[in-house]
């Protein structure tokens, strides 16, 4: 257990920290905690954690500010904790370099899934050339997409979107991040492009486009590819 990934938990609520410690230690993580934003940056510099779980609302310093200070010197994955209705904060945090977020209350399963995705993306190894999820298979090297064995024809834009999601599989991408990557920075506010193209993608890739299991919508934030 001593060589498990090190997690720094930054939250001012004792109960939350305790529950996170129990859950994380039970799953092989080494847990460090602090309740202050100011200390968090120092602790991160000292401990060099593999992951940071950061509450957006801290008493002494805005969680977003802590995130920015961390991002000045480390790419360590950061997962933000937030509450419902704070979608603006979530988007801001994601755009400022947070890797993912969790809305309180959340389950341990969700948390562990997010941590795994974040750790995976943090490793510099190149993504696999073939992505498989259910009966959907995407061969990135050949730009070839099949569903249930049959070939799926995608427009270049649809394919670009799918590839972007696959590169960040399991991780949330904000609208702005997607628009910047696929269309370019000057299209960052054209959210409706995404509604249209993800609608089309779902029609082509989902078993039941009305209840998507592959391309998930994060309300008010962005999209996530199930992983």
């Amino acid at each position: 257990m001593s060589d498990g990934p090190r997690v720094l938990v930054v939250d001012d609520e004792l109960q939350i920290r305790r529950f996170l410690r129990i859950a994380l230690e039970a799953n092989g993580y080494r847990v460090y905690e602090t309740d202050r934003g100011g200390e968090a940056v120092q602790e991160a510099a000292r401990l060099r954690p593999d992951l940071v779980i950061l509450d957006i609302g801290l008493p002494d310093m805005d969680g977003l500010e802590v995130l920015r200070r961390l991002r000045e010197w480390t790419p360590t994955p950061v997962i933000m904790l937030s509450v419902r209705d704070a979608d603006r904060d979530k988007v801001a945090a994601l755009d400022a370099g947070a890797d993912d977020y969790l809305t309180k209350p959340f389950s341990v399963d969700e948390l562990l899934a997010r941590l795994r995705v974040a750790q995976r993306h943090a490793r510099p190894e190149s993504a696999a050339a073939v992505f498989t999820q259910g009966d959907v298979v995407v061969d990135l090297s050949r730009r070839h997409v099949t569903k249930g064995g049959g070939e799926v024809k995608l427009t270049p834009t649809e394919y670009a979107l799918l590839r972007l999601l696959i590169q960040h599989a399991g991780k949330v991408l904000t609208h702005r991040q997607i628009l910047r990557e696929v269309w370019g920075p000057e299209y960052m506010d054209e959210t409706h492009y995404l509604r249209v193209y993800f609608g089309q993608l779902r029609q082509k890739l989902e078993d039941d486009p009305a209840r998507p299991k592959l391309i998930l919508t994060e309300a008010g934030v962005g999209y996530r590819l199930a992983a």
Binding site: R195, G199, P212
Partner: peptide
Amino acid sequence: EWCDVGDVVGVAVEQLDHYLAGRSL
């Protein structure tokens, strides 16, 4: 903002996934 109503419904359904279990939706 411009939204796909179907998408909104889908997310709502997803949220209540456990609750809806056992029903045909």
